[in-house]
Write a protein that binds this DNA or RNA. Sequence first.
DNA 1: GAGCGAATTTGATCTGCAGCAATTTGAGTC
DNA 2: GACTCAAATTGCTGCAGATCAAATTCGCTC
Lengths: 221, 221
Amino acid sequence: MLLRTNTSSIRPVDGHLAALAGERVFCSEFRYRRGTEVFGEGEETEYVYQIISGAVRTYKLLSDGRRQISSFHLPGDMFGLDNGASHRFTAEAIVETRVRITKRRSLLETMRSRESGASIFLGLVTRNLQHAENHMLLLGRKTALERVAAFLLEIDERLGHPKVLVLPMSRRDIADYLGLTLETVSRTCSTLRDRKMLKFEGATQRQIVLLDRNGLAEYDA
Amino acid sequence: MLLRTNTSSIRPVDGHLAALAGERVFCSEFRYRRGTEVFGEGEETEYVYQIISGAVRTYKLLSDGRRQISSFHLPGDMFGLDNGASHRFTAEAIVETRVRITKRRSLLETMRSRESGASIFLGLVTRNLQHAENHMLLLGRKTALERVAAFLLEIDERLGHPKVLVLPMSRRDIADYLGLTLETVSRTCSTLRDRKMLKFEGATQRQIVLLDRNGLAEYDA
DNA sequence: GAGCGAATTTGATCTGCAGCAATTTGAGTC
DNA sequence: GACTCAAATTGCTGCAGATCAAATTCGCTC
C-alpha cells in the first residue's frame, strides 16, 4: 500500500482568501521542515502566511511545559494577520509545510486602499474569534467524548469531507488542542471505533474513516 | 455599614474607546435590569454597546444547559462590534446596567471614513482575540487554583486595582467563566482566604480585598 | 427587624480523566 | 527484511474536581 506522510489535499480556498491570493498579494513561497518554528511568541509580527500544503499548529506554553494548542492551520488557511504588533503565540510546522508569505504591512495597506478591504479583514478576524468562542465552550464544558467527536467533525469539515481523514497531527497534538491527555484521546478513539463510528484505514492510526457523521454530531452536544 | 450592590467604579476609558466615545459616536443611552437579555444568540447584529455602569456576561449554552461564559463586560468596555452579521452568543445584564448604544452600521462607516478607523478597529478586535487565546489556555490547561487566581487578577486589573474588588457576578457566573463548578470556586476562594492571599470585606462575599497580588500572580503560572 | 428565598459555604462521597507503566505498532534507516 | 526509536494502545491506580447534601449567610421586602 502506498503511504504518504503529508497528503492533506489542498481544499478549495474560500472567497475572501481567493480575493487576496488571486491578486498575487502573496509574493514569495517558503518551506518549513517537520517540527520547525514558523514564528515564536513575542517576536515582531512581520509576515502573514497562507498554507499551500502541510499543517501548522499555534500554541501557548505555561512555565512548566503545559501546552495549549489554539488552532491547527490547514491548506488554504491564512494565519499571522490578526496578531497585534507582536506574536502572542508560537507557530510550528507539524509536517513538511509549504506556505506563501507576504509582508503584513503591505497586506494591510492593500486592504486599506480597497473598497472591500475592511470587510474582507472583518470576515477573517470574525472567523478566528468565532472559532475561539466555540473552542472555549468545548474546553470549559464538554466531556472527552464530545471533544474528540467535535475535533473529528471539525477536521472533516475543513478538509472537505474526504473519504479518508489523513491527520497530520499526533495524538499528543490533538490532546493539547482538546485539553486532554494523549491517553484519553487514544482511548476515546478506540471507543468510537468499537461503537462503529469510525475505523482506521491502512496501516496507520492517523488515517480515519468516519462511518457515522450523524452519530458523531450527536455526541457533539 | 453602607452596602452598595452595584458599585463598579467607572474605570478610565482606554485610548481607542475614548477616541470614539468622545466624538459622540454613541448616540443613545439604555438601561437593562438585572438578569435581562441584551441580545440573544442568532439575533441580527444591529447595535454596538458600551457599558456606562453595571456589568454584562456573554455566553453560549449546550443543549442540556451547560453554560460557558466567554467574557464579562465592565464599565468602559465595548461589545457587540466584532460579531458578524448575527450574534454568536447571548448577552445578559448581570446587575442593573446602563449602556450607550449606536448602530453597528454607522460605527463601521465612521471608522471607514477616518484615517485611523482601521487601526482602532484592529486594536479592538485584537484585544478580544487575545483575551480568547489566554482564556483557552486557562480552560484547557490550568488547575482550579490557577484559574481562580487568574480571574481575580484579571478583574482587579480591569477595575484599575481598587482597594476593594466589588464583584458584580455570582459564584455560578465565575464558575461558568472558569469551567468549574460553583462549589469549587467557593472552596478555592476559601483556600485563598486561609492562605492570607485575600479577605472578604464587609458583610458580603462579593467584596474582596487582595492581600497579596504577587502571591496570586505566582499561582497564575 | 422579622421572614423568606437565593446565594454561599462546607462536608462527604463519587467519578471521569490523569498519571504511570507495559506492550504493541509503525515509520525510517541501513 | 532486521533494527531502532517514536507513536499509539491498553491496563491499572490515583486524584482533582464534580456531585450530592446540609447548614449558614445574605439580600430583599414588608
